[in-house]
Design a protein around this nucleic acid. Structure first.
Lengths: 218, 218
DNA sequence: TAAAGTTTCAGGGTTTACCCTGATATACTC
DNA sequence: GAGTATATCAGGGTAAACCCTGAAACTTTA
């Protein structure tokens, strides 16, 4: 069996070493390089001609996603697996667009890591279960969107967005109702729908979402 | 030279492996265990009697700070070094209060890591340069605060801070209680006191406060 | 040692949040 | 004009949050 040439990209030495250590005794895998930035990865991809690149998504300077786009532009045969600390909908979505071949959380097991490299090398895509959930969610949302191109910023309706804004400002359901001149029951309905649509659990997460998406200011 | 017995605690397998790999060929260091949570660390600290514990500060469930307090309560001779992804003023401050022996960023070099273990084992404290800057900053701020105790009402206790952190992460009172191993009633008490001290009204405002003051990340 | 502060928890209460079902009016699209 | 989405609201329910009082155990400070 031919060796799979693997390039590691992470700005944290500990992570690079951790991955290298996990792959050390795998006979069909050879780590041909370790670099610490997206910029270096682009160069290394040409010089070391790796089969698979394992790259952190969140790095100082260029992100893993940007680096992926550059590398794929030069050579689309290279397989790229992105590693992410936190599983994030937007990152996965962006990654899919630049043609990533796999996406793993950083708490991946040794077995899953090796499996991912083998599958990706063989032309398959590899996503961990937790990623798959989000991918499917995203997929279904896109399906729904295709039926209705009249989409707002994040699939929320205008009114839902207004309620979200009010709630994130710190208002209670009753206060939101007063502000928007509607019944508290209507506010509750909107709020339930918002939480459901955005996959959130409670007001705390809703506030974080609102800040993250620049819906309210601090 | 006697071996320094080291226990690794991180909920990410890759980080555990990375650290273990860095310490692999150091003759005076022996990694005696690797666990993936604060809870396990408390048990392992008693069973494996390590000299030094390297622990991630941000873990699912119990944080490294919380685990440190428990372990130090059982055996104050164990040296504990916390690892932090992002350098955060409040974490350092809290860590100091629970008697941590060292504090390292996750992008620490192999040399600094080994140096830290040796120093901490020898009874010294070890903080990386970037941490030291913040420690000094904190120190000077405290000096300034002592001159005007007018805003003492706004200061939270260690426990209140931990509760604030958990709540802001989006956890319900019950979930916070489970994470900190206390009654939900205690959580409620703390929460009421926090809201009162900070002049906040509800969870939504609490989340905003936490983000504004870099207590949680987005 | 006494006083003050921290952490823990309970009982018992009110209020609010959250969820489900179902319904009506409106508007826009095919 | 039928179908779909939006926005409105109600009833009725469970769960959770929030508030108040009180108090024990412990630590730190004066």
């Amino acid at each position: 069996m031919k060796h799979i040439r693997v390039l590691l990209v992470d700005d944290h030495a500990l992570m690079r070493e951790g991955i290298a250590s996990m792959l050390k005794n795998v006979e069909f895998i050879e780590v041909v390089g370790k670099v610490e930035s997206g910029e270096e990865a682009i160069n290394a991809a040409q010089e070391l001609y790796p089969d698979v690149i394992l790259m952190d998504i969140m790095m100082k300077g260029m992100t893993g996603i940007e680096a992926t786009r550059w590398i794929k532009e030069q050579n689309n045969n290279v397989k790229i697996i992105l590693l992410s600390g936190e599983v994030n909908q937007d990152y996965i979505s962006l990654s899919a667009k630049v043609g990533v071949n796999g996406y793993l959380p950083k708490d991946v097991s040794r077995e899953a890591l090796i499996d991912a490299i083998r599958k990706v090398y063989g032309g398959e895509k590899y996503f961990s279960p937790s990623i798959m959930n989000i991918v499917f969610e995203q997929f279904y949302n896109q399906e729904a969107d295709e039926k209705k191109p009249a989409q707002k910023s994040k699939e929320l309706t205008t009114r839902e967005f207004e309620v979200l804004e009010q709630v994130a400002m710190g208002k209670s359901n009753q206060e939101v109702a007063d502000a928007l001149f509607i019944s508290i029951k209507t506010v509750e309905t909107h709020k339930t729908n918002i939480l459901s649509k955005l996959g959130l659990k409670n007001t705390a997460e809703l506030v974080k979402y609102a800040i993250k998406n620049n819906i309210i200011e601090l």
